[in-house]
Design a protein around this nucleic acid. Sequence first.
DNA 1: TTGAAAGCGATACCAT
DNA 2: ATGGTATCGCTTTCAA
Lengths: 350, 350
Amino acid sequence: MQRKATALDVAKRAGVSRSAVSLVLNGRGDGNVAKESQDRIRQAAADLNYSPNAIALSLRNQRTRVIGIVSDEVVVSPFDGNIIGGADDVARAHGFVTVVMDTERDASRDESAVETLLDRQVDGLMYVTVGLKPLDVPHGMLRVPSVLANCFDNSPTPQLHHVIPDEVSGGREATEHLLQLGHRDIAFLAGAATSPAVPLRIVGHREAMAKAAIPVREDRVFMAGWDINDGFHGAMGLLSASERPTAIVCANDRLAVGVALAAARLGLAVPRDLSIIGYDDEFRIAATMVPALTTMALPLREMGAAAMSMLLEQIEDPVQRPTAGGNGHLETMVPCRLVVRESTGPIPAR
Amino acid sequence: MQRKATALDVAKRAGVSRSAVSLVLNGRGDGNVAKESQDRIRQAAADLNYSPNAIALSLRNQRTRVIGIVSDEVVVSPFDGNIIGGADDVARAHGFVTVVMDTERDASRDESAVETLLDRQVDGLMYVTVGLKPLDVPHGMLRVPSVLANCFDNSPTPQLHHVIPDEVSGGREATEHLLQLGHRDIAFLAGAATSPAVPLRIVGHREAMAKAAIPVREDRVFMAGWDINDGFHGAMGLLSASERPTAIVCANDRLAVGVALAAARLGLAVPRDLSIIGYDDEFRIAATMVPALTTMALPLREMGAAAMSMLLEQIEDPVQRPTAGGNGHLETMVPCRLVVRESTGPIPAR
DNA sequence: TTGAAAGCGATACCAT
DNA sequence: ATGGTATCGCTTTCAA
C-alpha cells in the first residue's frame, strides 16, 4: 500500500518546482513555464500516475465539486431510486460527483447527515424522499445551495426550491384515458390518507369526470392503502357488487396487481371485462404484469435532473440564490406520463 | 452564509494558543493545560458553535472515518438496498459514516468511482451488487481495506473477502418445507441462466429431493426468467398439463406472483390446490400478496452487517489484512431464512 | 521563466 | 503549563 505520488514527487522527477507543476497541470503553463519544462512535467506526472489529492484541493479551494444527497429511504426502499439516478447524470455531466446518505426514515438522523456532509465541504445539498411528502428541512441545508426533490419545505416560510410530480394532471389524464375508451363507471382506488399525493390525484380524477359531465359516485372513490392485498380487497368489494365498475384506476401499480388478482379470482378477463390502470410504472412490475399494466409513470429521472440543474445553477451563479430557476417561484412541477399497455381497453359490450 | 468558526477563533476568544484548544477539545487537557484555561476554551468553543473542519482533519490525519460503498445499481434498482442498510448500521455503531456511489450498471464507471472515493481518503471500501454475481474488482480496491457484499472476486487469484447468501441451503430448505407438507411432485421455476445463484438453488432443490428419495423429473425444473410474466407462462405450462405438480418453488417472489396469477386464472385455489413458495421476501410484496407468500428470505441486512464488521476489523487491525475474519478463508456464507406464510399448505386430498 | 513563501485548518512535537 | 513551529498537499502571488 505505497503512498500516492504528490506534486512534489513530480516536481523532483522533472527537476522543477512545485509551482511549475501546478501551473502546467492546470493548463496555465503557456507564458509561464518553458515549453521544454512543460513536457518534462507532463511526462513525470504520467510516469508517476499522478493525480492531485482531492482533500488537499478541497482545503485549499474551499470547494469540492461534490454534491451531497440525503434521503429518507431511497437507498433502502425499492422506490424512487431513479430520482437519484437522474440527478447523478446531470451532476456528472457538469463534473460533479454525488454521494448519498440514507437515514432509513429516522428523522433524527437528518441533521447529523447534513452536518457530516457539510463538514466535508460539499458544494451543495439535495434532499430526496420516497413518495411525495412535506419535509422539516434540516437547518444545515440553509447554509449552502440546496434543493428538495419529491418533497417540499414544511415550514410556514419555505426557503428551498422543490421539484415534484404534477399529481393533479396525473390523476386527470389517467381517468381521461379511460373516458376516451368509453368508460363511464370508473372507480378510483386511492392510497393512504397520509400521502399528500392522494388528494391531488383524486382532484385530477374529479376534474376529468366533471369535464365529461359524469357525476362521481362517492362509493367509487376511496382510500384503500398502497399494497397488493389492499388492491385485492378493494376490488373484491367493488367487483362482487351487482353493479360493478368497468374500470378501476389505482394509485400505484401494487394496488393494480391486487385488482388483477381479484379479477382473475372472479373469472373476469382484463381488459375485456375490466380495465385497470396503475400509477408509478414500477420497474419490472408494470411492464411484466399479465396483462402488462397501463400506468401513469412518475417522472423520476426528470425530477432528479431538474432538481440537480437548479442546484448547479445556484452553485455556479450564487447571486440569485433564493429565486433559483429565475422565475421567482419555489416550485417546479414535472408532468407524469401515461404509458398505455394492455390492461386497458374499450368498454365491455353490453 | 458566514464562515464557520475555526480553532484559531476559539483560541483568540479564550486568550490561549491553538495548541491548547486542540489538546483540550481532544480530551488531553489534564496535565497539559490549566483547569481554568480549559474551562474558558470549552466555553469559547460552545459560544462559537465550534466543530473541527473535517477536511483539514483528513489532510492532517490521513484518515476520514468514512467508508465508501460503491454499487452496481443498488440505489437505483428496487432490490437489495438492505445490504447497505445493514452495513451502515454497523459503521455508525463504530463511529464511521458511509457514503454511497451507484454506477447504474456501467462497469466502466467502477474504477472512477473507486478513484474518486480514494482521492477523498476513505478509510475503506465495500462493493455491493444487486443479485449474486462475479465482479471484476476495481484495482483501487486493493489499495485500501475492502470487502465484497453479494458478489465475489472474479479473478483467477481472488484477493478480497466476500459475503454472500447460502443459496444451496436456501434452495434445499425451501423444498424441504414442501416435502414436509407431503408434496412429492414439486416443480422448480428457476431464474435466468446468467445468475450464479440459479444453479446453486437448483442443487439445493435436488439435494432435498434426493434425501427424500424422490426422483426429479427433468421437465419440472427449468429456467423461466425473473419476472411476473415469466412465472405466469411457466406456471400455465405446468398447470394446464393433465398431470400437474402440487407445489411450485420459485426463484424469486415476482415469479411467484405470476404463478399465483396463473393459478387464479385456472380456477386453482392457493394453497388448497397448489402450494407456492417464493424467494427473497421482497419488501411489501411477499407479505402483502393474496395469499401472503411463503418465501425464502435473503439475509440482506445480515450480509451487509457481516461485510462491514469484517471491513472495520481490517481497518482497526491492519496486520491480518489478507485473511480477515481470522479463519484464513475469503468467503462468508450467511444462511437464508424460511418465512412461512399462507401460500403453502398440505398436499391436496385426492 | 522560475522558485520561494503564504495560507487553507488542524494536530503534535519541542522548546520555553 | 504554554505557545511556536512543522506538517499534510496544493494553489497562488510575488520577487528575483
